[in-house]
């Protein structure tokens, strides 16, 4: 299975078929989710219309973790089995995950202001998400910090694995810290139980976000593999011209 996809050309062929399907899935799921979320679902009795932010906030938060998992697994596969396509997948995942993490923080702030009266609280979940954002930035910075791209790939793959081991520990420590310093406020972080009418748009939007991730992931991977071939071809031409 792993070996099968280690061939970039085979990946190009497969992703060429899958990309339009992912694009279609993203658009259909997002369209249905938006319709249900914005028009066909009721406002929450406690949170009013702001609950509609949930339909973009929760998928973003979910994808922030999903992308990091994908990134760490790809990095591990690339590092252990020297799998060229997995390396590309890890690198391509990082900007997408960073965008989702930023959006989770941003929409969270926009949801928090009307609900809790403040843009930001040092809540365990928010703080962990912020740390996750830093981990993404660190990964991308390390990846691009070397003159030799191979070194960047390997060093950042090790970092991704170290970070992956650390995410639960950081989450645990932040939870612990948060119970120690209970913020003096009337925040209700657990929120109301979700009405079934709200679950459907939520699921659809999560599906759309996942499909979007796969779509952009394939675009970015195809781009990088194509660029690799362009470089290789230029090198051949330069050698032929020299000879």
């Amino acid at each position: 299975m792993l070996n099968y996809f280690a061939n970039p050309r085979r990946f190009m062929k497969l992703s060429g078929i899958l990309t339009p399907w992912m694009a279609g899935a993203t658009l259909i799921l997002a369209g249905a989710g938006l319709y249900l979320g914005l028009f066909a679902s009721p406002a929450d009795y406690q949170q009013g219309e702001t609950v509609r932010i949930m339909y973009v906030h929760v998928p973003a938060a979910w994808m922030a973790l999903f992308c990091y998992t994908g990134l760490a697994i790809s990095a591990a596969v690339g590092l252990i089995w020297k799998h060229p396509v997995a390396d590309v997948a890890a690198r391509a995942s990082a900007p997408i995950g960073a965008c989702f993490t930023f959006l989770a923080l941003f929409t969270g702030a926009l949801w928090g202001k009307p609900m809790w009266g403040t843009w930001w609280v040092w809540d365990a979940r928010l703080t962990s998400m912020l740390v996750l954002f830093f981990l993404y930035l660190g990964y991308m910075a390390l990846n691009s910090a070397f003159d030799d791209p191979q070194r960047g790939t390997k060093a950042s793959a090790i970092l991704a694995m170290v970070g992956f081991v650390n995410v639960p520990i950081i989450k645990f420590s932040v939870d612990w810290w948060n119970t120690l310093h209970q913020p003096a406020s009337i925040l209700r972080m657990d929120g109301p139980t979700i009405h079934p009418d709200m679950l459907w748009p939520l699921f659809l939007m999560i599906g759309a976000a996942t499909a979007y991730y796969l779509w952009v992931l394939m675009l970015r991977m195809r781009r990088e593999l194509t660029e690799g071939r362009v470089r290789a071809r230029r090198q051949i031409q330069a050698e032929e011209a020299g000879a």
């Binding site: 740390v131 981990l135 660190g138 170290v162 970070g163 650390n166 950081i170 645990f172 420590s173």
Partner: peptide, 8 residues
């Protein structure tokens, strides 16, 4: 790279 890992 390191400061986030120092948090715990």
């Amino acid at each position: 790279l390191i400061l986030p890992l120092f948090i715990p």
